[in-house]
Design a protein around this nucleic acid. Structure first.
Length: 332
DNA sequence: AACTCAATCAACCGCCAGGTA
DNA sequence: CTACCTGGCGGTTGATTGAGT
C-alpha cells in the first residue's frame, strides 16, 4: 500500500506565508476553530495544504505564543530538559508555555549547542568534552564533535528509559542489585522530600520560588507520572514509569566539570545570572546525602552514562516501602 | 558600496502512532 | 485484521538577514 500524500499538492502554494494568507487563516480559526486541518485551507480560501496551515498556526499565528528571545531561565530549563530526555522537542516545549517545539529546536541547534561547546560541554551527552575525548581516540573525538547524528543515536540508545525498561531492564536492574540492607533509614532533611512537598502545592506545571530560588517544575504526562526538582545541575526524580517505580538522584554535568574547567558554579552563575551560590551551598550536601541514601536501596545501580544513581523497582516491596513517603497514593 | 560568509528561523519533508471504518 | 486517514514529531532545507572585509 503506497502512502498517500497529506494532500493534493498540485496547484498548492508553498514557501513563506503572506500577510493576507495569515489573515485568512487567523480569521477562519478564530471563527470556527481548526477542526479537521485538511478542510481548513478549503474552507478558509487558502491554496495551502492542511499540514502547512497547521504548522503556520501552531508555530507562528497562535495567539498564546511568546515573542522574542528566550529568557535565561527558559534557556537553562531547555538544557536541563535536554539532558534528561534528549531531542524530544515537543515535550521540552510543553514545559515552556508560549514556546513551540520548532522554536526550541532551532534555538538549540543555532545557539545552545554552540554555547555549550564553548563551555567545554558536549551538547549531546552533556558531559565535559575532555571527558568524551578521554573515552575515545583522537580521531573519534573529532568525529564526536563533528558528527551529531552519530552522537544522537548513541544518546538515544543509552538515554531512553522507557525503551530500556520495556525490554526488561527493570528485571536486569533487580538482578544486579545489592542485597537488602536493614540499616537503611530515611534521611532527615532529605532534599527529595523537600522537592516532594513543593510538588504537593504546585500545579502540574508551575513556577515556584523558595528561599530566593525560582524553578519551573513539572509532573510530566499521563502515562509517566514523574516528579523532579531540578536545581541547576543537581536533580532528584521519583515517579512511576511503565516498568515500575523509579528514583534517581545525581550530580549532573556542572559537578562533573569540577576539576576540568575550574569552578563550574561561578561559570554557571556568570552565564545564567542565577543566584546559585547560596542555593548550591546547601544542595551539595543534600545531593550527596540523597545519593548515599539511594545507593543503599536494594535495587539501586550506578547509571554510568547519566552519572547518577538509579532505582527501577518493579518487584522489590522493600524499596517500594522505603520510597513510599515520597509517592502519592495513586503512584503506589 | 559591493561582496562574501555565517547565523537565523520559517517552512517543508518523511516517518510514525493512533484512530476508525 | 487490514487499509487508510490524520495529526504530530524530529530532521533538514533554503531564503533572509546581518556582520565582516
Amino acid at each position: 500500500m503506497g502512502r498517500q500524500p497529506c494532500c493534493d499538492k498540485v496547484g498548492l502554494k508553498k514557501g513563506p506565508w503572506t500577510a493576507e494568507e495569515d489573515r485568512k487563516l487567523v480569521n477562519f480559526i478564530t471563527m470556527h476553530g481548526h477542526g479537521c486541518w485538511r478542510e481548513v485551507p478549503k474552507l478558509a480560501g487558502l491554496l495551502r495544504c492542511g499540514k502547512s496551515c497547521r504548522l503556520r498556526w501552531t508555530n507562528y499565528l497562535r495567539p498564546d505564543l511568546k515573542r522574542g528571545l528566550l529568557s535565561e531561565s527558559e534557556e537553562k530549563l531547555i538544557i536541563d530538559l535536554h539532558a534528561a530526555i534528549g531531542n524530544r522537542w515537543s515535550r521540552i516545549a510543553a514545559q515552556l508555555p508560549g514556546r513551540t517545539d520548532n522554536e526550541i529546536k532551532n534555538y538549540w541547534n543555532t545557539r545552545i549547542k554552540k554555547k555549550l561547546r564553548q563551555m567545554g560541554i558536549d551538547p549531546v551527552t552533556h558531559k565535559p568534552l575532555s571527558q568524551m575525548q578521554m573515552q575515545s581516540s583522537p580521531t573519534q573525538s573529532l568525529l564526536l564533535q563533528e558528527n551529531d547524528e552519530q552522537q544522537q543515536q548513541q544518546q538515544q540508545q543509552q538515554n531512553e528509559p522507557d525503551q530500556n525498561h520495556s525490554n526488561g531492564s527493570a528485571e536486569t536492574l533487580v538482578l544486579t542489585a545489592r542485597e537488602p540492607n536493614d540499616d537503611i533509614e530515611p534521611l532527615e532533611n532529605f532534599n527529595m522530600e523537600d522537592s516532594m512537598q513543593l510538588f504537593n502545592v504546585c500545579s502540574p506545571t508551575s513556577v515556584i520560588s523558595l528561599s530566593g530560588r525560582t524553578e519551573e517544575v513539572d509532573s510530566d504526562d499521563s502515562d509517566q507520572v514523574s516528579k523532579s526538582f531540578g536545581n541547576g545541575g543537581h536533580a532528584q526524580y521519583i515517579g512511576r514509569e511503565s516498568s515500575g517505580v523509579k528514583a534517581e538522584c545525581g550530580l549532573s554535568v556542572w559537578d562533573q566539570m569540577g576539576g576540568v574547567l575550574g569552578d563550574p558554579l561561578s561559570d554557571y552563575n556568570s552565564q545564567w545570572n542565577v543566584d546559585l551560590e547560596s542555593w548550591t551551598a546547601g544542595l551539595d550536601a543534600h545531593a550527596a546525602s540523597a545519593s548515599a541514601w539511594i545507593q543503599q536501596l536494594p535495587d539501586c545501580q550506578w547509571n554510568d552514562f547519566q552519572g547518577d544513581f538509579e532505582i527501577c523497582s518493579k518487584s522489590c516491596p522493600e524499596t517500594l516501602q522505603r520510597l513510599g513517603p515520597f509517592l502519592d497514593d495513586d503512584e503506589m
